[in-house]
Simulated assay, not measured.
Amino acid sequence: MKKPIGNIALVMTLSAFICNMAQASQFTDPLDGAFDMGEYLAENAYGFLPVPIIITEPAVGYGFGVMGMFLHETEQQKEARRKLALQSVDGGAMLIPPAVTVAGGGGTENGSWFALLGHRRVWQQDSIRYLGGIGVGRAIMDFYPWSNNQGPLKERGFEIETKGLGGMQKLQFRISNTPLFLGVQQFYSDSEVTVNNILGTEHTYRFGNTKSSGLGVNLEYDAKNSFFYPTQGWDFKAEYLWYRSGIGSDNDYETLLASSTAYFPIAPRWTLAFAVEYNALTTDESRLPPLAYPDINLRGIPVNRYQGNYTSSYQTQVMWQWTPRWSISVFGGVGGNSGIGEANEGVSTMFEQMKWAYGSGFRYLIARRYGVHMGMDFAFSEHDNAFYFNVGTGL
């Protein structure tokens, strides 16, 4: 099992950096005197929240990167949020979230690297939502097409190298004054895929350049009490995309994603949360690019370790707000996948060999004015373990 070694010094350096910054008045919260980046993000034209990315993802090895999160508001919005934040601990966090831009990149020890830019914005009192992003990079990871089968091939994988660029965008409209949104979305990628070490040999197969282009619709019901760190309420999301040659795709297939999270206060400072996710891919083609297939999405399980035409995951998490600034959590979940290329009967095989993962984490309220919590999760599974820097609850 890989273990997160060699990162203690970096964490200590970041801690010392935060302590030094806290000595400046712009990084001290006027309500409790604690370190806080809310005023800096709001009042500094170039202010951003640095999010370190210490990569321990078993699929790509150890690595490091950094993301910058920029928040955008008008002067009137800033003043309204500032006044509410001075009146109560979570006052500013209850307002409509500001526009958010994220930018950054990173790399890992096996030669994988990425750079991305994303943006989220709302208009007309959160009646219209937009989310978009573009990225470029190179990913080298193992592909396990027989992970759901019994027999000698179950643990047999081969290395795939994917180089290219991609992007997505989503536009949603609120239905009347309800929490329900309907929208449209687009996905596009242009990548070169090479398969190495097939069945333990030196044989290499090059897919060549593959374009994936999809258009689709989405539905979202959002009744959570916070965008950045919800502690009450629930949401539901469904997305259906068609990939067709008529819109620039080299392969014809459809994907469905349905997910939901729910947060229940069970005692003062205690929250119980649940999350479920279901993915389906249907096609008449016998071969698609390896990364087109969905995988089990659980902290602690390597990315793309368990792929299939159908995948699902089920998680629960308990969060304890230890102090007004610090919170800790424990979480656990299971997931399942069908085989790749299986027809409708693959849905039932998805539940035959469930995989598990569990862990714990902590969060610090780093920007109280916006309700932004940042921290780390330590996760374990039967194959590996890893830790992650996260903004939000992690679900």
Rank of each mutant, 00 (worst) to 15 (best):
D252T: 01
E43W: 07
N297S: 07
V66Q: 15
E254M: 01
G157K: 09
F274Q: 09
A273H: 02
K211F: 04
G333P: 10
F274S: 06
L41W: 04
M374P: 02
L10I: 13
V122S: 15
V102I: 15
G246M: 01
T28P: 06
G133T: 06
V102E: 12
S329R: 06
P30N: 06
S348R: 00
P179Q: 09
M319P: 01
R287D: 00
G65N: 14
N44P: 09
V184C: 09
N390T: 06
F114G: 11
Y62P: 14
Y253P: 00
E79A: 08
I247F: 01
L117E: 12
W234N: 04
F380D: 14
D295C: 05
G346C: 01
I266W: 03
A223Q: 08
N7I: 13
G214K: 00
R156M: 10
S189L: 03
G133Y: 09
K78Y: 05
A262T: 06
E73F: 10
F70M: 13
F331Y: 05
Y46E: 12
R138K: 13
L31M: 10
I266G: 05
G63D: 14
V347A: 00
I175T: 14
F35S: 03
L395A: 01
Q26T: 09
L116C: 11
N110E: 13
A24Y: 07
K211Y: 04
Y46T: 11
I53R: 14
V11H: 12
S213E: 04
